[in-house]
Design a protein around this nucleic acid. Structure first.
Lengths: 228, 228
DNA sequence: AACATCCTAAAACAAGTGTAATATTTTTAA
DNA sequence: TTAAAAATATTACACTTGTTTTAGGATGTT
């Protein structure tokens, strides 16, 4: 069905990772490449190095169970980092600094993106958010991640001048915009831009976070200019 | 496969629309709802009011042919409007006005979104752009739409202070952000926001276009403040 | 040792898939 | 009206899909 010559080699993951999370990683990667409906359970099981193509049913019950598990898996990883960041911000009295809060929301995603050699996270999450038309960005499966929820609450408090429903809408859009920046960054051919291409994503993070304050009309309060 | 109770009623389109474009509209709607890989040719044909489930093969050759036809169909519609807008802008000497150019790019999409009662355009295009990792926003199937291409060129000239590769990246992201604003606008339950919900999308267009100038660092030159 | 638990393998199934081939109708042109 | 062309319907087929079922094999505990 046209998507024939996709890379079907098994994940480079060593045997140290158990089968269940190998399925999560394989699923994330294939869903990111071919769309959430564009990969079969058999492909995923094969890529996870499992001759058993019923592995997804066993571990996650159903196809949708896997999709949700991928989402939860990544969310859990970020919760740890967000918790630490929130604690540090609180200690430094920067809880009312809009830029700090924005970084708590965005930076863990950047780190997730950097850690994965295939950069599947952003693409998967974009498609996931696009399909499950969740009215709220923080509308998750069942139990909400408390740290992200708190960061979003703090954020909404700092959004000024615009009514809350506009802020809500823009927050979602800004998040998707950020995900797409991540996606495209490693997706484009670097030769296309010549040698002026800065590969350290951290470098451009300044610009990104800065420029995102604007559509949200965030008012930075502590030592953060509105853009780099 | 869990997506069972989707609206399978035929399109309300009268018999005045020929079968080929009815397939395009049905495809757009179903792809928008269930993902580009989430709808079968049989569903689409049925929704197009055709007992013939091989209609897509006949008219478009293959599944991907239909996807591309949907894209081209909408692009063609917008080309007409963009041509008129460009001509008008040229006559008024506003070709160097960043905001005018941005409107030439964005407004036709808004009108497309408004004209379609099901608001499938934005959702479909988002997923299309997400899957076909086109390096350029204006990288289309075969023949490029000349008017959009010119608008994008004019736009790049007005983007200032930031290197071209950053501008490129932000332009794509801003476009996707805009599409998602369209999607969510009619996607969310209006009751959720109470009576303060302004249903005239044109009203919020001011804010949107204005706030989008910022991540692009556009410099408006004529009677356009940076935000509403 | 035996046991239970967890995981993997393999086979089977009904339903749905894209596409092709053929027949029928409808439209167009002469 | 008649012939050619375009569109729609019908049937068939080989293949893939998600899921279930059944069987086998680790691994660790008592």
């Amino acid at each position: 069905m046209s998507n024939v010559e996709i890379a079907m080699d098994a994940l480079p993951a060593a045997e140290t990772i158990d089968g269940k999370t190998r399925l999560i990683l394989a699923g994330e990667q294939l869903f990111a490449q071919n769309g959430i409906n564009g990969a079969s359970m058999r492909e995923i099981a094969t890529k996870a190095g499992q001759g058993n193509h019923a592995a997804v049913q066993y571990h996650f019950g159903s196809r949708e169970g896997l999709v949700r598990a991928i989402f939860d898996y990544r969310m859990e990883q970020m919760e740890a980092e967000r918790g630490a960041m929130l604690q540090r911000a609180r200690a430094m009295g920067r809880l009312k600094d809009a830029r700090t809060i924005l970084e708590i929301i965005l930076l863990p995603q950047l780190h997730l993106h950097d850690a994965d050699g295939n950069h599947s996270y952003a693409s998967f999450l974009s498609q996931y958010l696009l399909q499950s038309r969740s009215p709220e960005f923080g509308d998750f499966s069942g139990s909400e991640p408390p740290h992200l929820t708190e960061a979003l609450r703090l954020m909404r408090e700092r959004v000024d001048y615009i009514p809350p429903y506009v802020a809500q809408r823009r927050l979602i859009s800004v998040s998707l915009m950020f995900l797409n920046i991540l996606m495209r960054h490693h997706g484009t051919d670097e030769a296309e831009f010549g040698e002026s291409f800065p590969d350290a994503l951290e470098d451009t993070m300044e610009q990104i976070v800065g420029s995102m304050c604007m559509p949200l009309r965030l008012v930075p309060t502590q030592g953060a200019t509105s853009d780099s």
